[in-house]
Design a protein around this nucleic acid. Structure first.
Lengths: 199, 199
DNA sequence: TTTATTTGTAACCATTCGGTTTAAAATTAG
DNA sequence: CTAATTTTAAACCGAATGGTTACAAATAAA
């Protein structure tokens, strides 16, 4: 919208909140995946008609990318927020595990893993974004492991990078399995056992 | 085709091999997923026109189900074939791990995991089939672990069911990650470390 | 009031989608 | 040869797809 000399916007005011629209679109893409989410689905869940969606976000792919970024930002922010115990890095790691499990609950999985499986081999833009998010998370997890080793909570002889990789792979596997047939309890148990094996 | 009194088929002979068609369709679904694979894709890779595809397989969904079963059968058969060392169950487990990693190489992942992520929450038929395959594999892996424990190759105090679950989740995570940004070497290394941690 | 700009509405568009039908081709049987 | 059956080839079909356009509605500025 163009700012006028008085600072007031010209033109009809928006009847929607852009962030709420993005959130609704993100939810649809997260549940159904990219290909299976149609523009009709998106107009329905956002209550915005197609022309408005195109005006704000450009096209379906761009809306998807914005939704994926939104998902990753929220997940990272919320996961970071549970890292609150300065005295026990291991407790923080467990809190992160719990947080991620809660988010992937029922059968939505993780939008990043969903997108990796569905799109990464064929869409280099998605792949690049997921790589950025993945490396960011690996670094964060590895840093927490290093702290836990310094605090004598995790065995010092273990390679923190390898541990971080194993936890990331376990997250990815959990996010996939939760959409199929494996009970949540089994999945949570496995992640806890993995961390226990480091102590 | 109707069998005549002389046992000879009536009508124009087929110009295709059903198994080869199924294999080609399976490859397409494996690489692109269900939604993103169009009938045009399928007629191209199978070199069979649509009417013929419909005649043999029914519709897209049924073709997909047949392809998924085919994939699972092949994978199970080939994986079982590498279980050849009667003296060392642990060697067999390692061979299975290697086999599965080789199959998921580059960025195709695993058709079962791909389908779980894309379809299982919304398609109960796919979900039921994947559950059957998953439980079958869990049993097989668990049996091998029990044997390795009996042979003193894996620690006896570990719960074989939990180990089998952890390996399945690691396979699923590997199948997802291999489609994204994680190098094969890191993924193989993680699986090997997991098994090493049982000994 | 007119002009300019943005947004909402609804229709439009070309292409693609999964599925079906028609007619010719290829075989066996009588 | 005709009749029956199956397969191939190609066209057809209605609906769905992602994207665009035309116009009315809602605002600010002059």
């Amino acid at each position: 919208m163009v700012k006028t000399p008085t600072g007031n916007p010209v033109g009809r005011p928006r009847e929607f909140d852009e962030a709420a629209v993005l959130e609704a679109a993100m939810e649809a893409f997260w549940r159904k995946g990219y290909e299976a989410t149609s523009l009709a689905d998106l107009t329905e869940c956002t209550r915005l008609n197609k022309a408005s969606l195109y005006r704000v976000f450009g096209d379906k792919h761009q809306l998807f990318m914005a939704a994926l970024k939104n998902y990753a930002d929220i997940e990272f922010r919320e996961t970071t927020a549970v890292v609150s115990d300065a005295a026990s890095p291991l407790t923080n790691i467990r809190a992160v595990v719990k947080k991620i499990c809660d988010d992937a609950g029922s059968d939505k999985g993780c939008m990043m893993i969903n997108s990796m499986v569905e799109l990464a081999p064929h869409d280099s833009e998605v792949k690049a974004l997921l790589q950025k998010f993945g490396e960011q998370r690996l670094q964060a997890i590895q840093a927490m492991i290093v702290q836990a080793q310094a605090a004598d909570e995790i065995r010092a002889e273990l390679d923190p990078q390898k541990l971080a990789v194993s936890l990331m792979i376990a997250f990815a596997g959990s996010a996939a399995m939760v959409k199929g047939f494996m009970p949540d309890t089994q999945i949570v148990d496995n992640l806890e056992n993995l961390i226990d094996s480091w102590t």
